[in-house]
Each structure stands twice: as C-alpha cells, then as structure tokens.
Design a protein around this nucleic acid. Structure first.
Lengths: 347, 347
DNA sequence: ATTGAAATTTAAAACGTTTGCATTTTTGCA
DNA sequence: TGCAAAAATGCAAACGTTTTAAATTTCAAT
C-alpha cells in the first residue's frame, strides 16, 4: 500500500544522469542530445514519473493554476450557471495544461479577502472574477496589484482598462423590444432586480436605447424592481405590474427566473400567455423549456463564454498584452411560445 | 504596479527575529513567548503577510487541497449537479482551511489519467470521486496507491473497504412503490438507462425488493432501457412503454430528465398525468417544478451530501481511520402533482 | 555573584524542482 | 594526432517554507 512517488533525483540516478540533464530532457531542451531525450522520456514514462507541483511552482514562480472565488450563494439557490461555467473554464484551461482552483469564502469572510489570499499565497497565476458589482473592490484590488485577471462582465464606467468578456445583454434586450414592437406591442414592462450588479443597467439601458431608436412616442415602458433573492417580494412586484389597471402587453424580465415568476403569476391571474401577455426572459435556464407554454429567451452559452475567458486569461498570463483584451458575446434568441402578437383590445 | 509579496524572511528581518521564530509564532507554538507571538501576529497582519503555498507544501507534504476530476460532459449537458456539488464541497472544505482543485480531462485522455496526475504530482491531499461505474478503475487505483479519497456512490460489491457516501436510491424507489401501491397501482413501469453506473442497479433493486416485500403476485413491473445521452432513443424507449397494448399505470424513472420525457410523451399520446398515468422521478431538478403538472420526485440534496463528503475526506486525511467511513443519505420525497390514484378501468 | 534548569530563540537542513554558469565530451578539420 | 569549436552534461544556487537539534537568554534559588 501507499506507493511512494518517484522523484527527479531517483529517476536521474536510475539513468545515471544528473538531475539537471533529466530535467532539461523532459522539458525538451534542444541542448540535450536527442538520443538522451528519448531515453529519459522512455524511462520517465515507464517509471510513471510526475513532477512535483509544489517544487516546480516554488522555483519557477508559476503554479499552472487559475483561481476562481466561488460566489457566496444562498442556501436554496439552484441553477446551472456555476456548473457550466467551471466546465467551460476547465475545457479552456486543460488544452494549455492549466487547472482550476476553487476557493470558497467562509461565513463572515468577504469574497475580497479570499481573493487576496489566493493571489498572495501564490496559488494561482491568474484569476477569473464573475458577477461584477456596480462598484467592485475586487477589480480595483487586482488592478492595483497588477495581477492577471479576466472579468466575466463589465463595470459601467472605469478609469482604467482591464480584461473582460461580457454577454451583450443590451443588444439582446434591444432585439427583444424590436421583435415585440413589430408584433404590435406598444406598452412594455420590465421586471428587474434591486441588487447592485452592472448587468441590470446594461440590459435596461439596451432596452431604453432601442425604444429611443424607434422614436415612437406611443411606446410606454413600466419598470418594477424586486430584491433578487426574496421570492415573496418578487411575486408581489410582478403582481403590481400584472394586476394594475393598465398592464403592459409585453413583459421583459431581467432573467429567466423572473420571467418564470411572471408566467406563473399571469396564469394565476387568468391571463393567457402569449394571448394576453407576451413574456421574454434571459439566460435560457433548463426550466424555461418546460414551463408552459415554453419561455422565449436568450441563450448566453455560459460554457462557451467560460472557455473563451480561460483562453483570454492564459494569454494575459503568458503574454502580458499592452492593451486590455475585451470581448462582447451576442446571445442568441431562443424563440419558444411565450411571445406573440399584441392583443387587439387593450384591457 | 505589480506589488511584490512579502516573504517570511522579510517579515522576520523587519521584526529583528529569525525566520524560525516568526514561522513558529505564526503557527502559534507554545514555546514562543506570548509577547513575541502577539508582536509577530500584529506585524504579519499589518504587512499583509500570506505564506507561500508552494513552499509550505513542498516542505510539509501537505497541499491543503482536495482534488475533483471533472466528469467529462457532453456538449449540451445542462444540469445543476456540478454547481451544487462544488458549492457543497467548498462549504465543507473552507471551515478547515482547505480548497478545491478541479482538474479536467483533455479530449482523448481518460479520467483515470487525470486522476493519476493529480495524485502523483502532489497537488492534492485527497480526492473526491463521483459517478461510480460498475467496474471502476479509479477506486482500484486509489486503493492500491493508499491515497485518501471518498466516493460519492458505491460499488455493487467489492473485495475491499473504502470511504463512501451515497444517496439511498434503493430506499427511495421502495418508498415510491409503496406509495403507488397504496394508491391502487399494480402495473408498474421503470424507465432506466443502459450506462454502466452502479446507481441504476441500486435503485432498480430497491424497487424490486419493495415489490417482493409486498408479496402480491398481481404486481407487475415492465422495464425499458435507453442510452443515457441519446434523446431520440430515450423518447423511443418511453413510447415503447406508453403506446404498448397494455401500459403501466405508474412509471418510475431512474432520474428526473427521464421522468420529464415520460410526461412530455404522455401528453403527446393524450394521456393525462396523473389521471391516466402516475410518474415519479428522482433528483428534484429545477425543471421538475415547472413541468406540468409538477413532477413528484425525490430530493437528494447534493449540496448537503457534498459538504458531508468534504468533512469525511478531511477526517480521512487527518486521522487515517482504521475502518472505512460510510454514510447513506435518505432522500426526501417531494410530492407534487404527477402521482395519484390508479385509474379505475384498465385500458 | 553563581549555577542549573527552564524558557526562548536560532542556525541549518530539507522538500523537489529549474536554471545560470562551468565543465566535460564529442566532432570536424588540419 | 592534435586542437579548437560545438555539443552535451553537470554543479550548485535558488525558490520560501517547516522542523530538528542546538544555542542562547532568563530566572529562581543558593
């Protein structure tokens, strides 16, 4: 039991070569005779030699790891985001021989403190930052530190450049508006959240911009806001919009969970979707395909974005490019059955 | 920019103490004068000292990491399992100061080879293994190596002990049968998969055992099998059961995705759920709450299990217990609207 | 003041690699 | 055969910790 792991020293001894030569041979240095390189490679393979990560990291200053601080999550939060995201990151990293470190913030510790620890303990060569808040101390810290990172999402405005990849929510919400407008809708509702995340502004602004672009003064937009994680308040907010004397004919929700609530509450209020009300969401979570009549939404392909982020980060680590890398991914419309022509008569 | 990280040497110099003393002071050794310990702690905090992981790992032989090899996933697989699992692991690990390493298998590399690399490179002090297959080379490898691990799931039979935590699918499927039997059902269907995973046997055996326990010869069980990831074959298999001349009145699916397919195909065949057909799933995925009429299923609380697994693994690493640690978690029934009394007349 | 024990601190080795520089071996050519 | 240049290999330091064993300081009791 408890098989020992072979070290470079032992491997070198068994080949009657110096540690140096074996190390260089395995690294494929040209200066080592080809014949030797092959001999070493063969022996290493046969002995099952795997270099010790800690030793290598210590001397080279590169850990081969990329860090991700797990967002703190409520106890009952269930979604596929994290799974898809780490899967995508893993796929992007593995082709370059890198791996992922997931650090969790303990109760009472901020996400920032965990990030600092990851950075300053030398565990990772770079980090990925998600869920960008309106004023995000993590970006400021990483920037000041000069530590390689890529953000998934953007700040609204910043006085410094940084690497980011974002889903073009603004474009999607504009596209949603245009589609609904062409279906005859003129009275719109937006269900959004109060959490101080930047994506809510980007999406709302995209919707507003599309409305302005159209230049039709008869277009009207109502907005209701709910706390992100309070299901009851969410339902109440939705009903404020649905049960009012003059409700919109089309509701765009900031993301699918909200859209599903809208559909449920619409059903409860006796409204047919899409006959009386069109609903459009964002994210294309699995449930949106099952919730009747099938939610029309946008797919942001998290997994693909994450893979891209991994590529970007590895580039940043390896090449330290002078200009920030940025990438805006356009989500694709998933047209299901929750949108349709505006009802003829206004209630 | 690019702030340097302070080392123990520098910290020691600034305190006019030796590296040894500072190291011990930070570790809280009693042998260092309390006054000194406090002085050091204060200086370390103020200087933002964080020990270098690689150096510490190299000398101590402990990395403070736990490894998880990401299951290889099809391109369109979307579920919440992975996200919940790593969240739970993270929660369990962080209280002991450990973190998680996620290693991905590159295309063409087996999960086993990645596991070997994680183990033999000294990146992790222990690993978690999920999705146990009928004959699982990973367990054999870890066992032979004497490397600490905890399996999420079990082998059907093994000639050696190992640490595992499993969801008691057998019990759940028995419970499902009993409930349906009491509702008058006598003709049952089981929709399962052909993949060589142990959980399918455990659940099916649990169902069979419950039937045997009841001892009613009029009970009948039909079984159909589909490949796990082939949606078309899955639909075909389900229809084989639904459209036959003599269909079951209650169908138990190995997991929710299959149950949702059953409900969709039932609707397409003009069958009412639960009027004509009762359906029960397993896993309680998010979509099961939205798919009409609401799927009755079992919740395995992945996140909680994962936290428990993390605890177990840390115990194994720290204490090397003589007897294997094992834990069977009973899933809870989530009664929604997809089950009901058996229809009066048999078709 | 002296002494021995207890309390506190330190020097130095070790962990397993990479790498700058030095050394040895081989090769081509006279 | 001898010699310089090129090719191949090796020595030793370094990375930042922890830890063993030893050294120093402090202190109470004489």
């Amino acid at each position: 039991m408890t098989t020992r792991v072979i070290t470079l020293k032992e491997l070198a001894a068994s080949l009657d070569l110096s540690i140096t030569t074996v190390s260089r041979a395995l690294a494929g240095h040209e200066q080592i005779a080809l014949k030797t390189r092959e001999r070493v490679a063969q022996a290493a393979r046969q002995a099952g030699y795997v270099p010790n990560t800690a030793a290598r990291t210590l001397v080279s200053g590169r850990s081969g790891f990329v860090g991700l601080v797990l967002p703190i999550r409520g106890p009952n939060l269930v979604d596929s985001f994290l799974g898809e995201f780490v899967t995508g990151l893993g796929e992007g990293l593995v082709s370059h021989g890198a791996d992922l470190i997931l650090a969790t913030a303990a109760l009472g510790h901020s996400e920032l403190s965990v990030l600092r620890h990851v950075v300053e303990s030398g565990r990772a060569d770079g980090v990925v930052v998600t869920r960008i808040a309106e004023t995000d101390e993590r970006l400021a810290y990483l920037r000041e530190r000069g530590f390689p990172f890529v953000a998934h999402g953007r700040l609204l405005d910043s006085d410094f450049g940084y690497n980011w990849l974002d889903t073009d929510g603004a474009h999607a919400f504009g596209e949603a508006f245009d589609m609904l407008y062409d279906l005859g809708h003129r009275h719109f509702g937006l269900v959004t959240i109060s959490e101080a995340m930047t994506f809510r502004h980007l999406r709302q602004d995209g919707l507003a911009a599309a409305i302005a672009r159209r230049g039709d003064p008869s277009v009207r937009l109502d907005v209701v806001t709910a706390p992100r994680f309070d299901q009851e308040a969410r339902i109440e907010a939705v009903n404020r919009m649905l049960r009012g004397p003059d409700r919109p004919t089309a509701i765009v929700a900031l993301f699918d969970e909200l859209a599903l609530t809208v559909m449920e509450e619409a059903a409860r209020a006796g409204l047919g979707v899409p006959r009386d009300l069109s609903v459009i969401g964002f994210d294309n979570i699995a449930a949106s395909a099952y919730a009747p009549p099938g939610l029309t939404t946008f797919d942001a392909s998290i997994r693909h974005c994450a893979r891209e982020i991994a590529d970007m980060l590895l580039t940043v680590i390896a090449e330290k490019p002078g200009k920030p890398l940025t990438r805006l991914i356009r989500p694709t419309l998933v047209a299901r059955a929750s949108h349709g022509p505006a009802p003829r008569t206004r209630s």
